[in-house]
């Protein structure tokens, strides 16, 4: 395709994708408590608000804690499963692979509602840790897919060599397998972390009435009074996501990672 057409097309798509973020970034620097654009005056106080206003700070703390823990749990579920599927021939175990991908493939409201009815039935509804478990299950797909890809890229002759030299299963895993799949563990963790940080509906249906994560806080602010802090949080989120995915791209093979992810998703 001709390069002028291509440039124009990419410019328009880029504009479409960037426009809401530009406007929100503009709103976030308003001097007064208005959502005006172009901004009236300039102030970074709304960014300070995220860290100094106790309500926003506790929401930030809740979100980050939730994302750190649930991503770790998701990896802890995905790693042994992916390893087992790579190491053993057990066709029936593939059912767990399907179960791992299902929560993410179905419309999110379904996972959310399933979690809500479950936690309400067993009587833990509203406890903060239920959100950690719910998010870990919801996002287990991401480390599972990256790790499955990581395992298929391991040259089996390396493992064979270690085995011939007398290494037992545990030693092989620690000294050969783990270093090779570490990048995939990190990117799986990163994907789960960023998505958990942004997730609204599952968090809302599990702990929405007892604690506020940042997305829940923004949603409540949307209903009960706008403030530019919502805009500054949005900018913070976009920046965080871009930095984390940028790091994944810097230290890993992003096109390859995505090439596998989508073909696995269908």
């Amino acid at each position: 395709m001709t390069s002028i057409f291509r440039k124009a097309y990419f410019f328009l798509i880029g504009l479409f994708l960037a426009l809401p973020i530009i406007v929100v970034a503009g709103v976030s620097v308003n001097a007064k408590q208005t959502l005006a654009f172009p901004p009236q005056g300039f102030s970074l106080s709304w960014y300070g608000e995220i860290f100094f206003n106790p309500e926003w700070r506790s929401a930030l703390f809740a979100s980050v804690t939730l994302a750190l823990l649930s991503a770790a749990l998701a990896v802890a579920i995905a790693l042994p499963l992916a390893w087992f599927l790579w190491r053993r021939i057990a066709p029936w175990a593939n059912i767990f692979q399907v179960l791992g991908v299902a929560p993410f493939t179905l419309p999110p409201v379904i996972t959310a509602l399933g979690m809500l009815t479950f936690w309400a039935t067993v009587g833990f509804y509203g406890q903060p840790w239920t959100a950690v478990v719910s998010h870990a299950i919801f996002f287990v797909t991401l480390p599972l897919v990256t790790l499955s890809l990581g395992f298929t890229s391991i040259d089996r002759s390396l493992v064979e060599a270690a085995s011939t030299m007398g290494a037992d299963e545990r030693t092989i895993f620690r000294t050969v397998v783990l270093p090779l799949i570490l990048p995939y563990i990190v990117s799986g963790y990163a994907f789960a972390f960023v998505l958990s940080l942004n997730e609204y509906i599952v968090a809302y249906m599990t702990v929405g009435f007892t604690m506020e994560t940042l997305p829940i806080k923004i949603f409540n602010a949307l209903r009960y009074g706008y403030t530019p802090t919502m805009a500054s949080v949005t900018v913070l989120f976009v920046t965080t996501a871009a930095v984390i995915f940028g790091l994944v791209a810097r230290f890993g093979d992003l096109p390859k990672l995505l090439g596998a992810m989508s073909s696995d998703g269908k």
Partner: peptide
Amino acid sequence: VVWLVALLSILSLSEVIIGFAWSTL
């Protein structure tokens, strides 16, 4: 890679945030 990072960043945004951004726009 630059475009993929940008696309992933937008994809990971919460619906709350996308809704807020467009309602502002």
